[in-house]
Nucleic acid binder design. Structure first.
Length: 830
RNA sequence: GCGAGGGUGGCGGAAGUGGUAGACGCGCUGGACUUAGGAUCCAGUGGCUGCGGCCGUGAGGGUUCGAAUCCCUCCCCUCGCACCA
């Protein structure tokens, strides 16, 4: 018998699929479309197990949807701009472009070896000017609409990457990419007004409920950080205007006994009274500003501050409140000034204790009636009723928020306000290998957009990259100097490039017509394919790529490019691939290389193990013995296929047949076959539980193995066997397509599995000839009886009570009642 | 602290609406075939047992004829956010 040779089988079928362009999508509006997409890879060199996992999951879905008759789009491309290319260029003396394209070739070959059903006709790399030119166009159009602006601002600087980072790209004060500690720098940067969409980004999360993982929704909600409250003006004594604060607790205004300002508060100096401690206060504020932002922003950090000598007036109590500078007040959030309510805010409480400031209860918890002025040991931030609040006393705190805000509004000293934690997206990067920002600086005319007809602003390829972070663009005279589009005078180009997250914010839309050269999109193709029906990727992009892409979709919609609000109808976040319980890494030396796996076991085994070892969203601990188990199963499948092939008829899966003409074994086999279809369809359709789908097919294969010799040589039984075998191959095909195609053709089929339809099971074939009834006595398992499926309750009951073991347990005792669940069990209660 | 998700054999993991806990696979044990096997095949495999059973899904309580599943109290783990006023 011929040995199973994955290499041979896989090469053969990959060639067949490629030649026939089986997986090229066409805009066929008559058919329902299904767009399945995995987050595209950065071409780092070779693929790793994380790639194998995500693309395998996507491929199973794509192949399954093909079988369900959908017009499937399953494209692939390259997130090709980015820092590693520059670093590699410096290290190996090559050019980022050369390095990148070489990597793409290598990774593409590996993806092909894995047998993914990708539409390679739509492939593109984001570093191609044909791609990023449209991004430059979007930049200009967003700018025109006021959604892009330039400002000097304190930004996150990664000293290792030698570039700035957006807030989303800083994790615990460290660079998301390299882990270096982020520093603060003040630079002129380009920002995209994502905050303009904060409300919509938050609101539309509701539409993703149930189709996106809860935690991703939670993380985005958290990140956007909407807070409802009021802005309140506190007049400064001495006629120096007023200080505006934002608070979520206007109900506690009567408890505001002092004011805290951020050390960066811009009007600080003018608020200080003449003479006295001016210098000392400014020095203290300076010291706080210099504190390590990491430490300063930690909750455990010691609260400290300095009294400014100035006072403001509480607009409702009329009391004067000392103004402090406090290290825990952030300039970036709200107004940079906080009304301090020590009775009901723990930070203010600690501050008040330290500086001996008055602490007053204004919200009394339920059940503490009469205790309006207790000795407080900590702040109370819960619900309750107002006390010590003049005419508002007695109101519940929620109504008091409304009432007090309304009162302030009437006085002209406040109004409702909503604040977000989300900040605008800083997209400037001080790097070479990215899409140039299409802006020209003219000494006379200032910042000017590059005219659309001059796009793309191409990244010059003849440059030298430096290890010291000098910008090659600033050194390239050809790139740098240009004419001002307004006055024609000598002008300079912007030398910063765009954050690479900009490219990945719209690539999914470009696939709908990747070869469109006159515009970013073909509207018809785009409307047909979008949104992505199933998106798959890592959880690490919960507030990075996934937030940016949602924002870009809405922005492009408003620019008139698309008609959708959300880009990804369903999201699956796959778990990590671990080895020995830890993330794979070079330093730990626990890397499993997909290349090795392909060589030793082939694509089908690698895919099968990856899918079988754990459900997609959970982490997967790589297990070499598990891989061998998967390989063993495929060997068994192969041997079985070769043994059966000459006895099979190409009757198709779930073939119609007369149950009465079948032997007992054949009927059992047929029931198993149809039951398997029912089970795996559910697993594939609703929950992407590929591990249990595989387990079910394994059961069917085991059943075929054990029944095959008991079958009669008659035509009817042979059909049952053929049908069951077809179903097994179809069920496994999305996971292990090569071996299944081969065995399928050996089973006598001429049409390939790639074009085969998914079977429909026949509920009648599921009918049991006898059903096993479990018999319990007082809830404990005491026996089993077989009864006809249509047996009535009484009949089942009698059969159960007739069981010998059941009789023994019941003997001599009175039966209280008998619970009969037809088709399932009998419980005799004594 | 807030938010999300989890705790089931030696291991990965199964158990659509409460109804035989442990499917499928790994590992392990015994056997067969073999010069040999880490190949293949067969049988077994939650724990304890006086072989009648008893105990078992993080702990404790509850609802129910019946709970991994529902309710209450608590413990532990993982991830995310965290001085955001």
């Amino acid at each position: 018998m011929q040995e199973y040779s994955p290499e041979e089988v896989e090469r053969k079928w990959q060639a067949v699929w490629e030649e026939a362009k089986y997986f090229a999508a066409t805009e066929d509006t008559a058919r329902s479309k299904y767009y399945v997409l995995e987050m595209f890879p950065y071409p780092s060199g070779r693929i790793h197990m994380g790639h194998v996992r995500v693309y395998t999951i996507g491929d199973v879905i794509a192949r399954y949807k093909w079988m369900r008759g959908y017009n499937v789009l399953h494209p692939m491309g390259w997130d090709a701009f980015g820092l590693p290319a520059e670093n590699a260029a410096i290290e190996h003396g090559t050019h980022p472009a050369k390095w990148t394209y070489a990597n793409i070739e290598e990774m593409k070959a590996q993806l092909k070896q894995l047998g993914y059903s990708l539409d390679w006709d739509r492939e593109f790399a984001t570093c191609d000017p044909e791609y990023y030119r449209w991004e430059q166009l979007f930049f200009l159009q967003l700018w025109e609409r006021g959604l892009v602006y330039r400002k000097k601002a304190p930004v996150n600087w990664c000293p290792d990457c030698r570039t700035v980072l957006a807030n989303e790209q800083v994790e615990n004060g460290e660079c998301w990419r390299c882990g270096s500690e982020v520093e603060e720098k003040s630079l002129q940067q380009w920002f995209v007004k994502i905050t303009e969409y904060a409300e919509e980004l938050l609101r539309d999360l509701d539409t993703l409920q149930g189709v996106w993982p809860d935690r991703v929704i939670a993380m985005q909600r958290n990140w956007i950080g909407r807070s409802e409250g009021a802005e309140i003006d506190f007049p400064v004594l001495g006629g120096k205007g007023s200080i505006r604060v934002f608070t979520t607790r206007p109900d506690t205004l009567y408890g505001a006994t002092f004011m805290s300002l951020a050390p960066e508060y811009p009007r600080l100096e003018e608020l200080l009274p003449q003479g006295g401690d001016r210098e000392r206060v400014l020095r203290e504020a300076e010291r706080m500003r210099a504190e390590d932002p990491q430490l300063r922003e930690a909750e455990e950090a010691e609260k400290s501050g300095v009294f400014t000598g100035a006072y403001c007036r509480n607009p409702l109590t009329g009391e004067s409140m000392p103004i402090y500078v406090a290290n825990f007040v952030l300039m970036e959030y709200g107004t940079g000034a906080v009304m301090a309510v020590p009775g009901h805010d723990q930070r203010d409480f600690e501050f008040a204790q330290k500086y001996e400031l008055p602490i007053r209860r204004v919200v009394r918890p339920e059940g503490e009636e009469g205790q309006d002025n207790p000795e407080m040991e900590q702040a109370y931030s819960g619900p309750g009723f107002l006390v010590n609040s003049d005419k508002f006393s007695g109101l519940d705190h929620e109504s008091a928020k409304q009432a007090i805000t309304a009162e302030l509004e009437a006085m002209g000293l406040g109004q409702k306000s909503v604040q977000y934690r989300l900040r605008d997206w800083n997209i400037s990067r001080q790097r070479y290998w990215g899409a140039p920002i299409p802006v020209i600086y003219c000494e006379r005319c200032g910042e000017q957009p590059v005219p659309e007809k001059d796009l793309p602003v191409e990244l010059p390829l003849e440059v030298i990259t430096h290890s010291d972070g000098r910008s090659p663009l600033a050194e390239s005279e050809e790139f740098l100097y240009t004419e001002c589009p307004v006055c024609g005078g000598r002008a300079r180009r912007e030398t910063d490039t765009m954050d690479t997250f900009v490219e990945s914010s719209w690539y999914f839309a470009r696939y709908t017509k990747a070869k469109e050269h006159k515009a970013p999109f073909d509207r018809q193709a785009l409307d047909y394919w979008l949104p992505v029906d199933q998106y798959i990727g890592g959880i690490e992009h919960a507030v990075l790529h996934l937030l940016y892409a949602r924002f870009f979709t809405k922005a492009l919609r408003d620019l008139g490019y698309m008609g959708i609000d959300e880009p990804f109808a369903q999201l699956l976040t796959q778990g990590m691939v671990l080895k020995d319980g830890a993330k794979m890494s070079k330093s730990k030396g626990n890397i499993v290389d997909p290349g090795d796996m392909l060589q030793r076991f082939g694509a089908d085994t690698t895919r099968l193990f990856t899918l079988f070892a754990s459900p997609p969203e959970k982490d997967l601990d790589w297990n070499d013995q598990g891989v061998e188990g998967a390989h063993r199963f495929l060997h068994r499948l192969w041997r079985l296929g070769l043994e059966l092939q000459d006895h099979l008829r190409p009757v198709g899966p779930c073939a119609r047949m007369d149950g009465a003409g079948l032997s007992r074994s054949a009927r059992d086999l047929r029931r198993k076959e149809h039951g398997t279809v029912e089970k795996i369809t559910r697993d594939m359709e609703d929950r992407f539980q590929f591990n249990t789908a595989i387990a079910s097919v394994m059961e069917l294969v085991n059943e075929i193995s054990s029944q095959k010799d008991a079958l009669s040589p008659q035509e009817e039984d042979r059909h049952a066997l053929s049908s069951a075998w077809s179903t097994a191959l179809i069920g496994l095909y999305p996971m292990t397509p090569h071996i299944c195609e081969e065995l399928w053709s050996r089973a006598g089929y001429s049409r390939h599995l790639a074009r085969q339809e998914w079977p429909e099971y026949d509920p009648e074939a599921l009918q049991q000839e006898e059903v096993l009834i479990v018999v319990q006595v007082n809830g404990k398992l005491r026996g089993r009886v077989s009864v006809p499926p249509d047996a009535g309750e009484e009949e089942i009951k009698q059969a159960a009570l007739g069981q010998e073991n059941v009789r023994r347990h019941v003997e001599g005792r009175e039966i209280d009642k008998v619970v009969v669940v037809p088709g399932k069990l009998v419980n005799v209660v004594l």
